[in-house]
Simulated assay, not measured.
Amino acid sequence: MSEFTHFDNAGNAIMVDVSEKKVTDRTAAAAGIIKTKPEVILAVVQQSAAKGDVLGVAQVAGIMAVKQTAAIIPMCHVLLIRKCTIDFDINEEDSEIRAVCSVKTDGKTGVEMEALTGVSVALLTIYDMCKAMDKSMVMTDIHLLEKTGGKSGDYISVDGQ
């Protein structure tokens, strides 16, 4: 069998069969940053952006995205999400917002894609709500921070950030 588990021996795309896997507690956390102008950071902090509470809406959008990951990422399994949080850290000095998405379930497959999708959509929502003030925003450093559970065991990113 190929090490690429989403393809069969003929090269056709397949969904991985998890029916024989054990149900285990699984968690994942992912992070990312959006860099912008100081005036955008000020509007976010003061909740004075024209479209409203930027981080509140981004938080809801990220959670909704976690719950819909299987609908937008081919070959992802539908998972019953037990818990999801989206947290933000505003760095006014560097004019950036760091988002962290943490996801928890118990199942036969992990929630890394859900955490990565949640943080990505949260950042995209910040962009959408603030693009009138700054179309040059940059989303960067989206990565898996950690994951627990499953056959492959635990993972913590090298940089730990």
Rank of each mutant, 00 (worst) to 15 (best):
A65L: 04
M139Y: 09
K151P: 06
G32N: 07
V57Y: 00
N91T: 12
A30R: 06
D87W: 00
V78M: 11
T148W: 02
T85G: 06
V111I: 11
I142C: 09
V23G: 05
I14T: 05
K131C: 14
A132K: 08
E39K: 07
A43N: 09
A30M: 10
S19P: 03
E3A: 15
R26K: 15
A71D: 15
I156E: 08
A50W: 00
V158I: 02
E39C: 03
I14A: 13
D17V: 15
E20A: 09
K83V: 11
D141L: 01
F7K: 15
K151G: 12
D134L: 06
Y127C: 07
K131P: 00
I97S: 10
T36Q: 15
T109H: 14
V111Y: 04
T125A: 01
L144T: 12
V16T: 08
V111C: 10
G62P: 05
N9D: 10
D159E: 14
L42S: 10
T69S: 13
C76I: 14
H143V: 14
D17S: 12
G160L: 12
T117K: 01
S95I: 09
K151H: 13
Q59F: 03
M133A: 02
K51G: 08
L55R: 03
N9E: 06
K22H: 15
S120N: 00
G150S: 15
L123I: 12
M15I: 14
L79W: 14
V57C: 02
C76T: 14
C84L: 05
H77D: 01
L116M: 11
G160H: 11
G52K: 13
G62H: 05
S157G: 13
A70N: 05
A50M: 14
F4L: 02
A65M: 08
K67T: 10
A99Y: 02
A132H: 12
K22M: 11
V44R: 08
I63H: 07
S152W: 08
I97H: 05
G153N: 13
E39T: 10
K104W: 13
R82Q: 15
K151C: 01
K147W: 00
E93L: 04
M129S: 03
R82F: 06
C130I: 12
I14C: 02
V44G: 02
A61G: 03
V103D: 03
G118L: 07
K83R: 01
M113P: 04
I73H: 01
I72M: 10
Q46S: 14
I97L: 03
L80Q: 02
T117M: 15
T69V: 15
D89L: 09
V16M: 13
R26S: 10
P38W: 03
K37F: 09
E93A: 09
I72N: 00
I90L: 06
G149S: 04
C76R: 06
N9F: 07
E92L: 02
H143C: 10
D89E: 13
V138P: 07
S120R: 01
G62E: 06
V54K: 04
E146V: 05
M129I: 08
V119Q: 04
A71G: 00
K51R: 14
G52A: 13
F88H: 08
Q68R: 08
V60A: 03
A30L: 12
V54S: 04
G52E: 10
